[in-house]
Each structure stands twice: as C-alpha cells, then as structure tokens.
Amino acid sequence: MHELALAEAVVAAALEVAEREGLSAIREISVRVGELQRIEREVFEFALREVLPASEPRVADARFRVATEPTRLRCHACSHAFRLSDTSSPLDPDAAESIHFIPELAHSFLCCPVCRSPDFEVIEGRGVSIERIEGS
C-alpha cells in the first residue's frame, strides 16, 4: 500500500528530528493529511501505530495525531479562490487514483470552476506533512 510508504516517511523524518534534537523518546507526532491526496486514514494510521514503531524503539511509545486539512486552491489565471468540492462533478476513479499517488496531477484532471484554467495553486491541503514532534 502506498499509505505505508508515506507513513514510513513520517517515521523516518521524526527519527531525523529526534537525532538532531537529541531526543531519546518521541512522545507525540502530529501529522496533517491534505484532502487532495485522499489518504486512506485507516491504513495510514494503522501503519503509523502498529507497523512501523515495532522496529524503532524511539517511536515505540509515540502517540500519533492525524488531522485532515481541507484543500484550498486559487486560480493563477483569474485569481478565483475555490475548494475541491467546487471543481465539477466527482472525479472518476482513475483521476482520483492518479492524484492520490501524485497530488500535482490534479492539474491534469481539475480546473478552475470559473475560467476552466488548469493553472491553479494548491494553497493548502496537498499531502502529508508533520506539524509537531514532541519528545524528551
């Protein structure tokens, strides 16, 4: 599953931070997942909580907080600000899958609801990011 690869990146990045900051145990990791990428939360959180910590003592007791961030977009051509739900009918499964793998492919499938331009900016809610890491 692709969610596992992203969860692995979160743990690897957290361990880098722990290394840099001299933390021996990470208590909590807060992660944001952008609406655009349509991460399967269950799989992603299962990977974070059950699969990965087993091999990494420093995150073995970490709590993971995962929050979904709504996607905000803005058209470069006409400056219209919009949300994912404003962009036409529901995505066909192939498009959704492509965007799931590479969120930038939204530019291949979606367009500005006002001027139809594919030249829009994803201001917020793209993919996976780490918001906070706590430890000692």
Binding site: F101, I102, E104, L105, S108, P118, R126, G127
Partner: peptide, 30 residues
C-alpha cells in the same frame, strides 16, 4: 515515468509543482 499515473494527458505544472511531484515520485517508488 509520470505517464504511469497520468497516461497521455498534459501535465501543466509550475516549478513548485514539478518539485513536489518529483519528490513524491522519488519517495514512493521502490
């Protein structure tokens, strides 16, 4: 290749999108 995901559709990407897509591709490809 990006075509694995998008087929023959155009990929109109600005620099920041190229950077993001490239990193995503490198991060998920085993």
């Amino acid at each position: 290749s990006i075509v694995a995901f998008v087929g023959s559709r155009p990929t109109p990407l600005r620099g920041v999108d190229v950077s993001n897509a490239l990193l995503e591709l490198l991060a998920i490809t085993r």
